[in-house]
């Protein structure tokens, strides 16, 4: 059995079924993110693991033991909240020491551990400050140290960075990942920010309507989305309307131009399909046997990436290129030849 396991977990609030038979296995030391839109049940699932909500059906196991009769304060799971939830009447030190004191630890042992934790989060000098004397980022660091101090079995974080501004968010998320690796602690991280989830997780669970739509390594989720929803939710996606031409040899027509996907299609000739293409799978005359004639409509610079907005017949297509010296952009309105590999596109029913 995995270190942490959810089996067919259901949660209803009145008639509203919010989590609908969710199963999940997390290995020891793994960093798993729950990613999904607002209201898909991420927080509810996390709170059931923490013990703040009881599952309506199903069970949750940690280290092989079923948790339904274990109250939250006996689960030994550290929790980090979106709004920090530091104790306002205690200094950073005493916040961090709280869990240790509850365990009955005393004196030098506590102090040593608190020093260690302050060091870990890089706030050595801030121990005597009260929460209101710390910035949001510092408060969340203290909250992280507080959760980690008693040595919990796993760490649960509910959108810990969403109240912080962009720069600090990136710094702190890298720090969280580094600390998690150093301690080897099993971690579940809730976020609605796909970049965050993809950049720090071992595995990402994309959630929708109270279920996990796909779970896998970040590359897997991004490169091989299992469902149209995941494909659309993660990253940017071009959806081109097409009609099947010769399903046996895997060809379609897009605005009168032939595209080959290199595999058999489940369609009758002339049937409508959508073609799914990542902007970075398209290039201006790069490798790839497919070619689409297009017109350049707009150019947007995103730092290292240049995003071209092109038009294939009546449909808009986004193309991402690296912003390097060799890139020679034609003028707006110029004709383009977009190339892409057959295996880079997916076909689905519209």
């Amino acid at each position: 059995m995995a270190f942490l396991e959810l089996r067919n977990v259901v949660k209803s609030f009145g008639r509203n079924e919010v989590v609908r038979g969710l199963s999940l296995s997390v290995e020891k030391g793994e960093f798993v993110s729950f990613l999904g839109g607002s209201g898909c049940g991420k927080t509810t699932t996390l709170r059931m693991i923490a013990g703040f909500e009881a599952p309506t059906e199903g069970s949750i196991f940690v280290e092989g033991a079923e948790l339904s009769r274990v109250p939250p304060n006996r689960r030994r799971l550290g929790m980090v909240f979106q709004n920090y939830a530091l104790f306002p009447n205690m200094t950073a030190r005493r916040n961090i020491a709280f869990g240790l004191r509850v365990e009955g630890k005393k004196g030098p042992e506590v102090e040593r551990r608190v020093d260690e934790m302050l060091e870990l989060i890089g706030l050595g000098e801030f121990g005597e400050r009260y929460p209101h004397q710390l910035s949001g980022g510092q408060q969340q660091r203290v909250a992280l140290a507080r959760a980690l101090a008693p040595g919990p079995r796993a760490l649960l974080l509910d959108e810990p960075l969403s109240a912080l501004d962009a720069k600090i968010r990136v710094r702190l998320r890298d720090d969280i990942r580094a600390i998690q690796r150093e301690l080897g602690i099993t971690t579940i991280y809730v976020t609605h920010d796909q970049e965050e989830a993809l950049s720090i997780s071992d595995r990402v669970a994309v959630m929708r309507d109270g279920l996990i739509e796909q779970i896998g390594a970040p590359f897997e989720i991004y490169d091989r989305p299992a469902t149209p929803y995941v494909a659309g939710f993660i990253g940017t996606l071009n959806l081109l309307q097409a009609t099947a031409l010769d399903p046996e040899e895997g060809s379609l027509l897009v605005e009168g131009q032939v595209v080959r996907v290199g595999r058999r299609l489940e369609a009758r000739p002339g049937e409508a399909r959508s073609l799914r293409l990542r902007p970075e799978a398209l290039s201006l005359g790069g490798p790839g046997s497919n070619r689409l004639a297009a017109k350049l409509v707009n150019v947007k610079l995103h730092g290292a990436i240049v995003r071209l907005v092109a038009r294939v017949g009546g449909q808009e297509v986004l193309v991402d290129c690296f912003n390097d010296r060799s890139l020679e952009l034609p003028g707006i309105g110029a004709d383009l030849s977009l190339t892409f590999a057959p295996e880079s596109c997916a076909v689905e029913r519209p």
Partner: peptide, 10 residues
């Protein structure tokens, strides 16, 4: 929030 934080700390 404070209640849940304290409970999760034991």
């Amino acid at each position: 929030g404070l209640t849940e934080a304290a409970q999760s700390l034991g």
